[in-house]
Design a protein around this nucleic acid. Structure first.
Lengths: 206, 206
DNA sequence: GTCTATATTTGGATAGAC
DNA sequence: GTCTATCCAAATATAGAC
């Protein structure tokens, strides 16, 4: 316990080196795809040899895990909790903004999207700490829907489904373009109209 | 030209061997993931050594390509052209059936889905012949929507987006379960209601 | 904390005998 | 057409010197 009291200069340097390595790792993945992460090249990019990386990360998978945690932390930052009025039109607009921002966040870095939201790295299993960030993220989406009166778990599942569907198609079939991005407003109209009618039970009917 | 007149016994045997290899390749991928395809193990599975595979396929990527073509051929078979009545309710039911069948086809073999509909194998680029099968598949979806009066390209893009979104979420977050499969009918209600209102211009407006 | 050297594994592909 | 023998090229990870 006493060890963490004084944030030594040495510790700060280590943290900076770690951050540099992760930056280089992102850069390398963006260029060659998520699976292309390579310790020799990564070492070279930060001016060291591959074995030296093991001073900072105990394995390649731990690097992926740190990237995973960074990505979800960024996602949470991109989706602040809604703090506007609680009137229905305001909340609905808040949701529209959040979803639009979330999709922009995803498309801004397809490799990050792949790491965070698809299961594509063979041996990679996120640590518990990282998974907590992921759950927190999903929960933020849930809270948004609750503000609209959408408490049903199905409402959230359908929402994640239409959002990731749109992002996936955009990335897979029109990378860098806007063929699906253009459909965001239609998608939101479609989803909100349906979800509110289906799960918001205006009076007491099922 | 004259060479293809007589389908020799030798040729038939070659075709059977090819088919055996591909079956084993699917099996191997289903077990270890799409990227796990390995020529030594594949050879062993069909009772030969790795180099012998090169008699039948000129490279590993050519095996993926053959699997890709097989997969899309199966997809086309799973989605026969609609041949029922042309009344609107009948056509709409036909679409619902087709989509439901298509989703079942996708979920029946997640590895196949990954190969056909996601970009996940590093160096793999489908051949032109294989791509034609992929386009033919998409076109079948387009034809279905046209029967409903949905000619807008956006209607097709939104449809592929909601369908793949549902499949992706099911595979990624509840493999083998039905958490998203249960939402198929809701998803169809949502999409069809919206798409018809949005793009079917009942009178001459917009 | 970083290096050199190396172990270890893996896996695609080719040459040439049979 | 299939084999054995090999080549070649990654790439992760460890040992031990400095």
């Amino acid at each position: 316990m006493t060890t963490s009291v004084a944030p030594t200069r040495r510790v700060l340097i280590r943290q900076r080196t770690r951050a540099e390595i992760l930056d280089a790792a992102w850069e390398q993945c963006r260029r060659g795809g998520l699976a292309s992460l390579n310790l020799r090249a990564l070492g070279a990019a930060v001016g060291m040899k591959a074995p030296s990386l093991y001073t900072h990360f105990s394995s390649k998978m731990e690097i992926y895990d740190a990237m995973f945690a960074q990505g979800y932390t960024a996602a949470l930052a991109a989706l602040p909790l809604y703090a506007g009025e609680r009137t229905k039109p305001a909340v609905e607009q808040g949701i529209r903004d959040s979803v639009t921002r979330f999709i922009a966040f995803c498309l801004a870095d397809p490799v990050r999207y792949q790491l965070l939201f698809q299961r594509t790295i063979p041996g990679f299993v996120p640590s518990e700490a990282s998974m907590r960030l992921a759950y927190e993220n999903l929960d933020r989406g849930r809270q948004l829907l609750v503000l609209l009166g959408l408490h049903a778990p199905e409402a959230l599942d359908l929402a994640t489904s239409v959002i990731t569907g749109l992002v996936d198609q955009q990335i897979s079939n029109d990378p860098g373009g806007d063929r699906w991005v253009r459909l965001i407003d239609d998608m939101l109209d479609m989803y909100l109209t349906f979800a509110i009618r289906r799960w918001c039970a205006p009076a007491r009917r099922s």
